[in-house]
Amino acid sequence: MFNLNDIIRPNVLKMKAYSSARDEFKGDASIFLDANENNLGSLAGENYNRYPDPHQKKLKARIAGIKGVQPEQIFLGNGSDEAIDLLFRMVCTPGQDAMLHLPPTYGMYEVSANLNDVALEAVQLTPNFQIPVQELLAQVKPTTKIIFICTPNNPTGNAIESESIEQVLRNFNGLVVLDEAYIDFSDSPSWTTRLAEFPNLVVLQTFSKAWGMAGLRLGLAFASAELIAVLDKIKPPYNINEATQELALKALFQTEALKDMVEKIVQERQLLMQALPALPAVEKVFPSDANFILVQVKDANRLYHYLLEKGIVVRNRSSLPGCAGCLRVTVGTLEENQKLLQAIAAF
């Protein structure tokens, strides 16, 4: 039986969160002399002389309505990378505990593990980029505290089978972190709908992809209110700046525009997936539930540099396990995609 307090680091359980000026003040006031702000104003614009809401209450209320969760189940971070780092800090004792991930996958899990001195253990995805569940569970040790699963997976683009994820959730007494950065482009339902069922589940999402807000750096973690309360305790007090909160809140009222953009990207993805296999340089196009496509080509390094010469930047993923000879291509505009196809055809 999973018990969150059993895996949180003892020092984290005991610590008290930093109490900011905005946490201590309650009620209404017209003169603020508590936070050592510049009361003359800001050279950057109105309201930026004041510290932002450390709890992002307005933003979380809007997100909760869109995602069908409670505000207390939402953590907002400086990109989902902040949530990844804080999850390590929350449950992994440096030099003692371990994590499991499934390469080829998102590289920040490994970077954060190394930064936090957490042993990095890996089980490679199957040739069709799914989880070898029994092999994964056999690798679990008493010191294994987190398993990271990216779905749809980066860089392969495919969604991970829900039955496999459920098996992992039911048979592992640590945190299972599902990174859903690309969920908006997939037909698979989000695992946020099953948070109540699995107390060890953490779902990561981001506003960098479908919402088009990569420059604002706003990521999300969804989990039980108990787990989110711990993340809120250990985060920096003002981790989401005022400009990001304002602009994100404005964007969150444009859900129809989001739907239109996602539909266009998925349509362009399908057109690319139909056109790429016909090109002589292309050997295989992998299925994609994301806003990118993994493409196996005859000479990945040469084609990558050839495209650079043409002013087209893709990602060379051929050094990753299971991705020999592969380039990762983000779905662009109709014009960009046509130029890409023309360039590969002329290679």
Rank of each mutant, 00 (worst) to 15 (best):
M15V: 06
Y18I: 11
Y18G: 01
R22V: 09
E24T: 14
F32A: 09
A35F: 00
N38S: 12
N39Y: 06
E46V: 15
Y51R: 12
P54K: 00
H55Q: 07
Q56S: 15
L59H: 04
A61R: 04
A64I: 09
L76Q: 03
L76T: 05
G77M: 04
L87I: 05
R89D: 04
T93F: 06
D97S: 03
D97P: 01
L102M: 12
M108T: 14
E110L: 13
A113D: 00
N116D: 01
L120R: 09
F129W: 13
I131S: 03
L136G: 04
Q139H: 08
I147F: 01
T151H: 02
S162Y: 09
D179E: 08
A181P: 07
I183S: 12
D184E: 15
T193I: 12
F198A: 07
P199L: 08
L204I: 04
S224G: 00
E226I: 05
A229K: 07
I234A: 01
P236S: 09
N239E: 04
L247R: 12
A251H: 10
A251Q: 13
A257G: 08
A257Q: 13
E263L: 09
K264W: 05
M273E: 12
M273G: 10
Q274M: 11
Q274Y: 09
A275K: 13
A278N: 14
P280G: 10
K284M: 12
P287F: 02
D289M: 06
I293D: 03
V295Q: 05
K298I: 15
N301D: 15
R302W: 13
L307G: 14
I312L: 05
L320E: 14
G322S: 07
A324M: 07
R328C: 14
G332N: 05
E335C: 01
Q338I: 10
K339P: 01
K339F: 02
A345R: 15
